[in-house]
Design a protein around this nucleic acid. Structure first.
Length: 854
RNA sequence: GCCGGGGUGGCGAAACGGGUAGACGCAACGGACUUAAAAUCCGUUGGCCGCAAGGCCGUGCGGGUUCGAGUCCCGCCCCCGGCACCA
């Protein structure tokens, strides 16, 4: 230990020692309690950014804490190494995506090691290695067997920049999640995973994780799944065999329906257009439908802005099954084929959209729900009026009481809804139903750098699954990146042309699309538990020990995509008998962004190279040391908050570390002969220091349990300040009891500093005379002695009428009576109660006294 | 519009079931050391009034409950995030 603190030297030393001793290696041990600390795996872009540093500092601190608490901690890392940037590099610079990716991994691995992260590198995995993606393909086959994977022609989201299709989650808001381009709609054959089959479970099982997940993530997922209860009702179409099935959440308004409106893509529309001769009416409908389809494909729709509602009357008539009334059948641009049944009953009086539509085309508005008058529990409207559009400036969408609805009139909406659904079912023209906004997960990507979908097309046998024993379907080394909109694999003849695994016939062709990379990240943390297994994705018994993940930490940007997919994947694995639980992650923490000021403005924006406000972690580590960078990042704000990058803040962290270090250096010799147990004879100062030490242990321990990492640092700073004050006392010749107290304080301080600043903590631990690194020598988190932590004296505030008027210093065990008496005897208090009548005295022992006077 | 989370000093933030608002740190100011600066150390730092003792005000705004409200209830305002014609 040098007199002065040299971060670089210490950090190199300990990073080397950790590696040699395998300090962070984790092995399954059924006798020990495990803890799985996980951070979202990085994409190997080439460079670590501050968001990574924050993410991994949080996870690393937790891993250290749990290890010191005696848990068998699994803390792994790997690479989400399939994906677009590698392919872009290949397109732009002709490099090999695999080589580019692997070079990046080498560099970033070095960066993570320089940061001093405590990963078990023996478990490192990379999504692009055949040993890994083989199991992506294996899972795909399992889903295919169970009907959970299927191919169909459907409109999909197409990103013109990335030249690939996207899932709905990845095209949320109409923009590509990667590049922000406006997505287009295209018809395409594409593989889907049936996530909708799990919609109800994905909702229900949230109960299991409610306590451990942030509210907003659960809400976002809940909204995304979009469960909606209602009814399906069939409207017979006059003079035809077909029926129109509509979905509605408001059957109670069905007597107010004045039209049926179909989506442009609705089968009945196609049927109508494809029959008979071209009439003016048919031409109008055709033109309208084509226009709608065209604008839906390419229109640049700004979120929040609704298109004007338009439609065209087809001349067909539908029968309202409740009233037998004939309603015109329209096609409307505001009805979506993807939701519900692609057809709605239009109830202008009670639905905003239908109201707007009816206004434009002068459809009748018939009121069938009235507000309940609270004074008289009666309706307040003349129920006989037919067209009340003049009386209704907008739709009335609340529940109420039914009017104009035949025998249902007079019922409450809440009663009518289930009763009418039951009637529909009984009479065979409908039923109660639940629909979801969630769509199946489109996983086909027209990209090279991903896991090939293990399917072969044979002219004789059709679509054939690649047999398990032929996995992995290897990605070729090279392809032409011409950007034709098709997968580059389609141009690799050796890849495409194959024999049919079923009939052995030549001339079969492989699927050339690759899988969405979100598949890789849906189950990677199971693979960490058993990363070299060649016979299975993992051994179910091994993961039964390690999983579920105890604490997961990552960015909020994956609230819906990754975190929904991985929940789905886990449920599928459960149904395959591979895991025994429903939810993969017990506790989730979404860390806040790291922002930096945009030069010349006062705007704080997420750090990014393109914005020019990025900060290179390597520069920071070189300038301040990794310990200081980590400490600052954890101290500057609570983990969930935005972190505004201010370099003066790191100066503070460096100052603190230096103070602790030099304090220990100064005391070192005096501590060598400090007693091993607390001497009986002690002093006030020693007692006070020990009290502070044990209070700090209580606080920091609690802070780690709640992941309040910033206040944990504050508590350590307070202890350090107390030590500083202790050493500055005029009496500078410490007794045995005092040396003991200092040693105890320093040991506790150093141990509790380890999660934040592990290198310097190890160095100081060694300077305190401990052999070997903390973890390999079995060092343990300090234990607070509640008795020692207890205050002997308390300062009790005294209020008069709720305002602070004085303070009492009393023994910690002062009784209510004693507190009351000393409060009334206090000189300052006296001046406030003199000449007034004391009405009441509230005494909260150990807390305060409040005297109420009149 | 709907849903979720928030508004506390110059700044980042503390305050776990209502009980001393602003811990800890950054910045700033004053002082010590120094030829000087940096570093370090000591001190001050919510606002207003006051020589001081001390007082008054203060957690987005307006009400309420309570001996006592940053914390609970009602009504607003503003900010951040998510969703987007979902029938």
């Amino acid at each position: 230990m040098d007199e002065k603190y040299f971060a670089e030297k210490i950090e190199e030393k300990w990073q080397g020692r950790w590696q040699e001793s395998g300090a962070f290696r984790a092995e399954r041990d059924d006798a020990r309690e495990k803890f799985y600390a996980l951070e979202m795996l990085p994409y190997p872009s080439g460079f670590l950014h501050m968001g990574h540093v924050r993410n991994y500092s949080i996870g690393d601190a937790l891993a250290w804490y749990k290890r010191l608490r005696g848990f068998n901690v699994l803390h792994p890392i790997g690479w989400d190494s399939f994906g677009q940037p590698a392919e872009q590099a290949a397109i732009k610079r002709g490099v090999n995506p695999r080589e580019w990716t692997e070079e990046n991994i080498v560099h970033m691995r070095g960066q993570l090691q320089r940061l001093g992260t405590s990963y078990d590198w023996s478990r490192e995995i990379a999504a692009h290695s055949p040993e890994y993606y083989k199991w992506d393909q294996w899972f795909f086959l399992k889903m295919l067997e169970r009907g959970l994977a299927y191919k169909r022609l459907s409109p999909v989201n197409w990103c013109p920049t990335c030249e690939t299709t996207l899932s709905n989650e990845q095209a949320s808001g109409g923009v590509c999640w990667r590049c922000g381009s406006q997505v287009e709609r295209r018809e395409r054959e594409q593989w889907f995973l049936r996530i909708t089959a799990y919609a109800e479970q994905l909702l229900d099982d949230m109960r299991e994780i409610e306590a451990g997940w942030p509210e907003r993530v659960l809400t976002m997922q809940r909204n995304w799944i979009g469960r909606s209860e209602g009814a399906l009702v069939d409207f017979a179409v006059k003079d035809r065999d077909s029926k129109v099935r509509v979905f509605t959440t408001r059957v109670d308004t069905i007597y107010g329906a004045t039209a049926v409106v179909l989506a442009a893509e609705h089968p009945l529309v196609e049927e109508f257009l494809s029959e008979g001769e071209e009439t003016p009416l048919r031409r109008d409908v055709r033109e309208f439908v084509e226009r709608v389809k065209a604008t839906r494909g390419t229109s640049v729709k700004v979120a929040g802005e609704e298109e004007e509602k338009e439609g065209v009357n087809t001349g067909m008539l539908a029968v309202n099954p409740f009233s037998d009334e004939l309603l015109p059948v329209w096609v409307g641009n505001y009805v979506l084929m993807e939701y519900g049944t692609g057809a709605v009953m239009s109830v202008p009086a009670h639905d905003e959209r239908d109201f707007e539509f009816a206004q434009k085309y002068s459809l009748p508005v018939r009121r069938v729900i009235e507000r309940i008058s609270h004074e008289q529990e009666q309706i307040e409207h003349d129920p006989e009026t037919e067209d009340q559009s003049a009386a209704m400036p907008h739709a009335f969408t609340d529940y109420g009481i039914l009017v104009n609805s035949s025998e249902w009139s007079g019922k409450l909406s809440t009663d009518a809804i289930p009763e009418m659904a039951a009637r529909a079912k009984a009479e065979g023209f409908g039923e109660g139903a639940v629909t979801y906004r969630l769509r199946d997960w489109g996983i086909s990507r027209q990209r090279f750098w991903g896991a090939p979908i293990p399917v072969v097309y044979c002219d004789v046998c059709g679509t054939v699954a690649v047999p398990e024993k032929e996995l992995p379907v290897m990605l070729p080394e090279r392809a032409d990146f011409t950007g034709t909109g098709d997968s580059p694999l389609a141009g690799v003849a050796e890849f495409v042309n194959t024999v049919c695994p079923s009939c052995g016939g030549a001339g079969a062709r492989r699927e050339t699309d690759t899988m969405d990379t979100f598949i890789d990240s849906s189950w990677y943390f199971f693979r960490y538990c058993d990363p070299r297994n060649a016979d299975a994705p993992f051994d179910p018994e091994t993961i039964a020990y390690w999983t579920p993940v105890d604490q997961y930490i990552g960015g909020i940007d994956h609230a819906v995509m990754h975190l929904l997919y991985t929940r789905f994947w886990t449920k599928v694995m459960r149904d395959l008998g591979l895991v025994k639980f429903n939810e993969p992650v017990r506790r989730l923490m979404t860390q806040g962004m790291v922002t930096n000021i945009i030069e010349g403005t006062n705007e704080w924006k997420r750090m990014s190279k393109s914005r020019g406000n990025g900060v290179d972690p390597d520069d920071m580590i070189r300038a301040y040391g990794s310990d200081a960078v980590r400490l600052f990042v954890l101290f500057a704000a609570p983990p969930e908050n935005e972190l505004r990058w201010q370099e003066t803040g790191i100066d503070g962290a460096v100052r603190f570390l230096r103070r602790v270090y030099s304090m220990l250096y100064r005391w070192r010799d005096a501590l060598h002969d400090a007693p091993k147990s607390a001497p009986a004879e002690t002093s006030d100062a020693a007692r006070a220091l020990r009290r502070k030490t044990h209070q700090t242990i209580e606080r920091v321990t609690e802070d780690f349990e709640r992941m309040h990492l910033n206040t944990g640092v504050a508590a350590l700073m307070e202890l350090s300040n107390a030590l500083q004050d202790f050493a500055a006392r005029p009496d500078a010749d410490p007794s045995a009891a005092e040396r003991f107290a200092v040693r105890e304080a320093l040991e506790a301080l150093v141990l509790m500093l380890a999660p934040y600043a592990p290198h310097i903590a190890e160095e100081m631990w060694e300077a305190l005379g401990r052999e070997g690194g903390m973890l390999t020598s079995g060092a343990r988190w300090p234990v607070a002695d509640a008795e020692l932590a207890r205050k002997e004296e308390l300062e009790i505030p005294v209020q008069v009428n709720g305002k602070l008027r004085g303070r009492l210093v009393v023994g910690a065990d002062a009784t209510e009576e004693e507190l009351r008496a000393s409060a009334l005897a206090d000189e300052k208090v006296k001046t406030w109660i003199e000449g007034r009548e004391v009405v009441k005295i509230i005494v909260v022992p150990g807390r305060l006294v409040n005297i109420v006077v009149r």
